[in-house]
């Protein structure tokens, strides 16, 4: 690989006076699953929000497919195929499941391709097809998470940013979500996965980064990160 799909260098983000990210460096190659683990408030979600343009970094560079996307409007970033599936599902509760999925394809025009993607999402999450006409707010937590991921898939992502997809789900569902993430990745979507469940995330990912108080303190192949004694103690409870 000559150039990474996404390259973040020296990224600084402030929330008012709070220095949330302090010189983050991350690189993701096409086809990978990369995970960002760390405690609450370490800056994982902020990193994703900076990538997708929801917050404006103070300093640094973010390059996607070789082009700088720093400070770009979220709309522009979405149109490049960089899709952020936010924490807490954030489905449009009063809208139907189908409408939510259609919102995912908001910027796309080609109806046939959209219809094909819809089938693909229904293939990944058969339950969504059954509940197509139901208001998203009436779904269970796990179904809402599936809808959120499915909605992001409708944008036909090249890089999918997933923020805490397993949060608050029953263990069985967590397993299923991670299986689906793997499957999405196998279908050619690069994934940046933010997780508190470091154990599952590192098992699923190719590489991992560990964030602590706004800094990357460790990174490497997921298996190596998992074996690191410090990580084991702090995040894996071993």
């Amino acid at each position: 690989m000559s150039e990474p799909l996404l390259e973040i260098r020296d990224l600084d983000v402030f929330y008012g006076a709070v220095h949330a990210l302090k010189g983050i460096e991350i690189a993701i190659d096409t086809g990978e699953i990369v995970t960002l683990v760390g405690a609450n408030g370490a800056g994982k979600s902020t990193t994703l929000r900076a990538i997708s343009g929801l917050v404006s970094p103070k300093r640094g560079s973010i390059r996607f497919e070789g082009e700088s996307i720093l400070g770009r409007d979220p709309v522009d970033i979405v149109s490049r195929g960089l899709i952020h599936c936010p924490e807490g599902r954030r489905v449009f509760a009063p809208m139907s499941v189908l409408e939510n999925l259609e919102m995912g394809a908001f910027l796309r025009k080609d109806k046939e391709v959209i219809a094909r993607d819809l089938e693909r999402v229904y293939g990944l999450f058969p339950r969504l097809r059954d509940r197509m006409a139901q208001a998203a707010g009436t779904l269970s937590g796990g179904e809402q998470q599936m809808l959120a991921i499915g909605r992001s898939m409708m944008a036909s992502p090249r890089l999918l940013l997933l923020d805490e997809p397993s949060l608050g789900l029953a263990p069985l569902l967590v397993e299923e979500i991670f299986r689906i993430i793997k499957r999405i990745n196998e279908e050619g979507v690069t994934v940046l996965l933010v997780e508190q469940n470091a154990h599952m995330a590192l098992k699923c990912a190719h590489r991992g980064y560990v964030l602590e108080t706004g800094k990357v303190i460790l990174h490497g192949a997921a298996a190596d990160v998992e074996k690191n004694p410090m990580v084991r103690e702090a995040y894996l409870g071993a």
């Binding site: 929801l54 936010p86 449009f92 809208m95």
Partner: peptide
Amino acid sequence: TKIGKAMRAVAVDQDAARLMGVR
């Protein structure tokens, strides 16, 4: 219409709507 759906989405959750590419 698309703009109508965008309006409804923004009414529910502005940030999430922006992440869908809604202006």
